[in-house]
């Protein structure tokens, strides 16, 4: 453990999780410093480290990839580019696209999975894909461990660790989704009300829609996902009829109206357009 880099910030660099949690005891207000890429607009001129920081760059425990029978566990400290090296059978192409849509190669080598998910005030670009894939997030402290689902996180509007806690793992179930769609509009330079991400996954069987999932992510308003719509589409015969498409658009309109912060005119227009586009793609496949 390296102590005592004392001016102007106090930075601790633990080498494993045990040391990390031990550091939180005497330093309850210490802030986690992972990749350091999350808020580049705040970094202009200097890095502005917090007064007391726990830097995770040496913690190998957080960079592990573990393969289970039906899931893959990704360490929360895994650099974003390392996610692209996860075995193809475990890495949904939509997740790959979401990762590739973040920054550039250099930023993805620095930025971490946990850092992207636990940004202040919003959920990050990878979250909507993980939500659709049914991912779970492990938070650990020195004595406790808890898992929270993506659905719980989206209700809360963010993934937040309690004092002394750290996100350590993301568990992604393995499930085949032959049809996958990912579309991101805007980047960190774009105004909030012009940013949007859409993810859709679907599976067909014997000419029927076997499973369908659709999600929109609006950074200022949160997650837009209508499970009633998804349930209604299961078992529908392909190609989908005009009635089914109109019903989907109706569901999405209602879901948009139910958001706490309404989408902008631009976002509303894009959401309806992308819904129509995804349904058309499913028809073709």
């Amino acid at each position: 453990m390296q102590y005592g880099i004392d001016a102007p910030s106090l930075v601790f660099s633990p080498r494993n999780l045990t040391e990390t949690f031990a550091l939180f005891g005497p330093n309850p207000h210490a802030q986690i410093y992972a990749g350091g890429t999350a808020s580049p607009e705040q970094n202009l001129g200097s890095l502005k480290l917090p007064p007391v920081a726990v830097s995770l760059h040496l913690v190998e425990d957080l960079r592990r990839i573990q393969y289970g029978d039906r899931f893959v566990d990704l360490g929360a400290g895994l650099p974003l580019n390392q996610i692209l090296h996860v075995a193809k059978s475990f890495l949904n192409p939509a997740l790959r696209q979401a990762v590739l849509g973040i920054g550039n190669n250099a930023l993805r080598n620095l930025g971490t999975l946990g850092g992207n998910l636990c940004q202040k005030g919003f959920l990050g670009d990878i979250f909507p894909v993980l939500h659709l894939l049914g991912a779970q997030f492990e938070f650990r402290s020195q004595r406790t461990s808890r898992w929270i689902s993506a659905a719980q996180a989206s209700e809360a509007g963010r993934l937040t660790a309690k004092p002394g806690e750290l996100m350590t793992k993301v568990r992604i179930p393995q499930e085949e989704w032959p049809l996958h769609f990912y579309q991101k509009i805007g980047n960190f330079r774009t105004p909030w009300d012009e940013r949007l991400a859409m993810v859709a996954l679907s599976r067909t069987k014997n000419g029927l829609l076997d499973a369908f999932r659709l999600i929109f992510y609006l950074p200022h308003a949160g997650i837009l996902r209508d499970r009633a719509l998804e349930a209604e589409f299961v078992g529908q015969k392909l190609p989908l009829g005009a009635k089914a498409r109109d019903s989907a658009l109706g569901h999405i309109e209602l879901a948009m109206n139910a958001l706490a912060l309404p989408p902008s005119v631009f976002q509303r227009d894009r959401i309806l357009h992308l819904t129509r586009w995804v349904l058309a793609q499913i028809q073709e496949d």
């Binding site: 880099i5 350091g36 580049p40 970094n43 001129g45 890095l47 830097s55 760059h57 650099p79 250099a106």
Partner: peptide, 29 residues
């Protein structure tokens, strides 16, 4: 640009390309 996007400060840190404007000095030890 101090945001890691312009490429002019990029370097290889243990063989991986990173923007040096976002790497705190202590991480290079």
């Amino acid at each position: 640009c101090q945001k890691g996007t312009c490429g002019r400060c990029h370097l290889l840190l243990d063989g991986r390309e990173v923007p040096s404007c976002l790497v705190p000095l202590y991480q290079a030890r």
